[in-house]
Write a protein that binds this DNA or RNA. Structure first.
Lengths: 206, 206
DNA sequence: CGCTCAATTGAGCAGATGCTCAACAAGTTG
DNA sequence: CAACTTGTTGAGCATCTGCTCAATTGAGCG
């Protein structure tokens, strides 16, 4: 392969590792998937990364960092209500569910790889923090007060994770559209009917 | 190893496979883990099971079947409210989280193994069905009516899955006791304050 | 006893894996 | 030009994987 400046190569390898991980899963993806995809010698990979587990962890790190800051940037210019509906849309409109496949795979594999555990612990924490801020903003904007934002955020986050996991099961009866409805209803439960009224003019059938 | 009647050996192998899977994860567990644990030749395993993936799927199948019917039996003699709190306790009091580690691992690996996908699709469906019945019973027993039981069951099930996943992350801030509180509160949200009053005499702070 | 057949063995094959290391290529500098 | 640094190669090793198959054991039976 053509000679490349160090940092550029490093990023290219991480990128290739991400797609390999998405294709074969964290446990099955291998160094050869990456080197073959790039048409590059096997030694090159170890010139940039001390070990495969290290590269793997960095690839996951970069991916989840991107996801979190993507949502953070998008919601920073929206009102609280719109932000929460955006969050749900963002989850549901992830076409082939790349985000969720990687996220759940990493949450699982984290039990066997301390490097991934570190990455995911921090990711979960930052995600929760972000959702908590959205909830707090929503409450301040006059939407019917509810629980402690931190608690509401935990429930919402966990619910998203759980629904995503089920939607990913092939042949299952949980679809992304169902998940969207369930999440929207959850927000109505948590924040009161005002959320729905503020938002789309739906009736609240509770 | 001593000679064993066919069916007994079969069960013994499945059992050993379960612990191997719990120890090393579905993706890393190997035939040799099983044969070594039993002190048995490698050929024996393939005498009883056509392939490792087959044995693996059967081991998971048996494990989740056991979990589901354990809960089903326990709740069959309880009132609806007690059943729902039992469900939460059952989730939280799973000491080293064997149930959840296997469950989440299987949900994840199901994306890469059609045999596991079949097993887990059915498991999720039966689990949801069971929770749905509990919710329906609760509503019939006069607890404040809420949504369609099927929908409430989806939210509750997904919430349990999501919380379990987070509680499993080491070093994370989600603990099992937190999960218990969040789930109890969720039931209060879904079924109304009557649930809590019926149950433990707590105040409802919504 | 011998016969039969299921249970059991384990060396060994073919493939995959992470990683090393001596060699080479190509820029940059003096 | 040489000297040096950095990017790059790929054969090869040690280890693991699932699985095969010819051979052995042993229990039950006539």
């Amino acid at each position: 392969m053509a000679r490349l400046a160090g940092e550029e190569r490093r990023k290219q390898i991480i990128e290739a590792a991400q797609t390999a991980i998405l294709d074969r899963g964290l446990a099955q993806a291998a160094t050869r998937d990456v080197t073959r995809a790039l048409g590059v010698g096997s030694g090159l990979l170890h010139h940039y990364f001390p070990s495969w587990l290290d590269l793997r962890a960095q690839a996951v790190q970069l991916a989840v960092d991107r996801e979190i800051s993507e949502v953070q940037v998008s919601t920073s210019s929206l009102g609280a209500s719109e932000s929460l509906t955006y969050l749900i849309s963002w989850m549901v409109e992830d076409e082939d569910m790349r985000h969720w496949r990687l996220w759940l795979n990493a949450m699982d594999e984290a039990h066997r790889d301390p490097r991934l555990a570190k990455v995911m612990t921090s990711a979960v924490q930052r995600w929760h923090e972000m959702v908590k801020e959205l909830i707090a903003r929503a409450q301040k904007e006059g939407i019917c007060p509810g629980d402690d934002p931190a608690i509401v955020a935990w429930r919402l986050t966990a619910l998203m994770d759980g629904l995503a996991g089920m939607a990913l099961i092939e042949g299952g009866s949980m679809t992304l559209e169902k998940a969207r409805n369930l999440l929207t209803k959850q927000l109505t439960l948590e924040l009161g009917a005002d959320f729905n009224n503020n938002q789309a003019g739906m009736n609240s059938s509770l």
